[in-house]
């Protein structure tokens, strides 16, 4: 948003007077949003922080202070520490794979001579699908445990006559195939569009100049022009990917939940699923809030680390 919008209008009062209504309008129009943000986000976050130092079972009222007990309980619970390990491994896998796929697709789509719009749209469409819908299609149709499931039909053609319960099999961990493929399908297209936009911002003269300087092969052009020019896009993409991976919930919840009131088992339990269970399943809002802050701190630490390594937000002058 910009506040210095109104150009000067001729007339008495001059520039200043003309600007005042715009400034007032800005206040008036943003106030509901800011007030909403304050009441529904910041107050809630602050309350959550206080609640994390309370024994709050079945209530969200403060008063039963118990110091760091909730944090101790969480970090002493093997189920929670395991969920942190789970999400870390998931992040380490899904971030580079999505990154490589999205970048690869963007480069390929960009090189197309005809039908670029068609392919761009085709790859992007899954991003418009809800995670819940995607997860249920994966669970009930593609990777259903019945012989008629798509994956099992394929396995049958390849000679495996026994139908496989993809989601239920944890040893070997076949459920990861379901979880990872659905996320890749859902999010790759979106990041591909970001890369594509980045690639199209690169001036064509740079490529021409590189060719004049003797860079002939596509690989060299990519390495010396495309990749460095995409740095800001890449950093932003990695940042978003990491945050999204840490907040994984929807597809895990919908694919793995099996019992009426219950969530899935220990396998594939992400921190958010664990906290959902703690706060809303068991009504332990103190421990739930504490966990939310542990996860937030983790996300912040990872983001800062990544920003430091990749140099997010640094300008060219600062670099040199």
């Amino acid at each position: 948003m910009t506040t210095t919008a109104a150009p000067a209008r001729p007339g008495p009062g001059g520039r200043r007077a003309a600007r005042r209504p715009a400034w007032r309008a800005f206040l008036l129009l943003t106030l509901p949003m800011v007030a909403g943000l304050f009441v529904f986000k910041y107050v809630a976050i602050g309350w959550g922080l206080l609640l994390s130092f309370n024994d709050a079972r079945g209530t969200i009222a403060l008063g039963d202070w118990n110091g760091l007990d909730n944090y101790r309980r969480l970090l002493g619970d093997p189920a929670f520490t395991r969920s942190l390990v789970t999400i870390l491994l998931f992040t380490l896998f899904i971030v580079p794979v999505t990154f490589a796929l999205a970048l690869g697709l963007a480069v390929l789509v960009n090189r197309l001579r005809g039908g670029r719009a068609l392919f761009r749209t085709t790859f992007f469409i899954p991003a418009a699908v809800s995670y819940v819908v995607g997860a249920l299609v994966w669970k009930m149709s593609l990777f259903s445990g019945t012989p008629s499931g798509v994956a099992n039909s394929l396995a049958y053609l390849l000679g495996y006559e026994e139908s496989i319960g993809w989601v239920a099999t944890v040893d070997p961990p076949l459920y990861w195939i379901v979880l990872v493929t659905v996320r890749l399908w859902l999010q790759t297209g979106f990041y591909m569009i970001l890369f594509l936009a980045g690639i199209q911002q690169i001036p064509a003269q740079l490529y021409e100049a590189a060719r004049v300087d003797g860079a002939e092969s596509e690989a060299r052009l990519f390495r010396h022009i495309t990749w460095p020019m995409l740095r800001n896009t890449s950093v932003a993409v990695v940042l978003l990917l990491i945050i999204n991976a840490f907040q994984a919930f929807d597809e895990f919840y919908n694919i793995l939940a099996s019992n009426l009131s219950g969530l899935g088992g220990a396998d594939g339990r992400t921190p958010l699923i664990y906290l959902f269970q703690t706060a809303l399943g068991e009504q332990n809002y103190g421990a739930g809030s504490a966990g939310a802050f542990v996860v937030t701190v983790l996300i912040v630490v990872f983001t800062l680390l990544q920003g430091r390594i990749a140099g997010f937000g640094r300008t060219a002058e600062e670099e040199s």
Partner: peptide, 21 residues
């Protein structure tokens, strides 16, 4: 997002907008 407002707000426009809101 960062495109500056190209048209200054008039009093009438502001009034209309607020009334709608």
């Amino acid at each position: 997002m960062d495109r500056p407002l190209t048209r200054p707000l008039t009093r009438r426009g502001l009034l209309k907008g607020s009334a709608l809101f």
